[in-house]
C-alpha cells in the first residue's frame, strides 16, 4: 500500500507541474499534429500513396514527439535538487521513477493515441485500420516512454544531453517502430495485426519490468 501511495505521489506531482506549465505538453502534441498534417500536403493528394505511408509516417511522428519531452524528464528535478530528495526517500527510487514515467506517458503518449483517428483521416485510412493504429499506439507509446527514461537517466547532467538521448534511444525504438507500423500495414494487407501486436505487448511487459529498475541504476550513477 505504501509503495502504491509513493507511486501515486510522484505521478500526481508531475501532473500538477504539467498543469502549471501547459506549453511543455502542447509542444509534443503540436509537433505530432504539424508533422502529420504537413506530410499529406507535401506529398500530394494521392490516396493510394497516402494510405501506404500512413502507418509509418504517423509512427515516426509519434516517436519523435515523445523524444521531444524526454530530456526534461529528469533534468528539471536534477537541477532543483528534488531528484536528490527522491533518491533519499525511504521508498524505493524505482517506484517514484515509475510514477514519473507514467506521468510522461499520460502527457506525451496518451494524447497522441487519442488524436490518431483525426490524423488518420487525413491519410484516408479505413476505419478498421484506424482502430488497429490506435491499439498499436496504445501499446507502443508507453514502451517509448519506458525506454526513453533509461536514455534520459543515463545522459543526465551531460552536456548536449538532448542529442545524446536521441542517439542512445533511437536504436532501442527501432523494434517498437517496426512492430507498431507493421501491425497497421499487415492489417491493411489483410494478414491480421495480431502477431505484431502480441510482440509489441511482450516488449511492453519486458520494458515495464526492467526499465524503471535500469533507470534507477542510471540515476544513482548520475547523482554521484
Amino acid at each position: 500500500m505504501m509503495l502504491l501511495s509513493a507511486y501515486v505521489a510522484a505521478l500526481r506531482r508531475d501532473l500538477l507541474l504539467v498543469m502549471r506549465r501547459k506549453t511543455e505538453v502542447l509542444t509534443a502534441l503540436f509537433f505530432f499534429v504539424i508533422v502529420t498534417t504537413l506530410l499529406p500536403l507535401g506529398i500530394g493528394p494521392e490516396p493510394d500513396l497516402l494510405r501506404k505511408i500512413a502507418p509509418g509516417a504517423m509512427w515516426i511522428a509519434a516517436l519523435l514527439a515523445t523524444l521531444l519531452g524526454l530530456q526534461r524528464l529528469f533534468a528539471a528535478d536534477h537541477a532543483d535538487g528534488t531528484l536528490e530528495q527522491m533518491a533519499l526517500s525511504p521508498e524505493p527510487l524505482s517506484i517514484l521513477v515509475a510514477g514519473k514515467i507514467t506521468a510522461h506517458w499520460l502527457v506525451c503518449g496518451l494524447p497522441l493515441v487519442l488524436l490518431a483517428p483525426v490524423i488518420g483521416l487525413q491519410f484516408d485510412l479505413p476505419t478498421d485500420a484506424i482502430g488497429v493504429l490506435m491499439l498499436s499506439l496504445l501499446i507502443g507509446t508507453p514502451l517509448l516512454s519506458l525506454l526513453g527514461a533509461i536514455g534520459a537517466a543515463l545522459t543526465l547532467g551531460a552536456r548536449g544531453s538532448a542529442l545524446l538521448v536521441s542517439l542512445l534511444v533511437l536504436p532501442l525504438y527501432v523494434p517498437t517502430l517496426i512492430f507498431g507500423a507493421g501491425a497497421v500495414e499487415s492489417h491493411i494487407a489483410g494478414l491480421g495485426a495480431a502477431g505484431h501486436l502480441y510482440l509489441l505487448s511482450a516488449l511492453l511487459v519486458l520494458a515495464a519490468a526492467f526499465a524503471p529498475w535500469a533507470t534507477t541504476a542510471a540515476l544513482r550513477i548520475s547523482l554521484e
Binding site: 509503495l3 501511495s5 505521489a9 500526481r12 506531482r13 500538477l16 507541474l17 532543483d80 530528495q85 526517500s89
Partner: peptide, 27 residues
C-alpha cells in the same frame, strides 16, 4: 534527512504543494 544547498522546491508549485509532495514521496 539530508538537506543540500539546492532549494529542492519546484518553482511552479506553492510551498504547501511542494511539502505535501515531498512528504508523500517519502511514503
Amino acid at each position: 534527512l539530508y538537506l543540500g544547498h539546492h532549494a529542492s522546491l519546484k518553482e511552479d508549485l506553492t510551498l504547501t504543494e511542494n511539502l505535501r509532495s515531498l512528504i508523500a514521496m517519502d511514503g
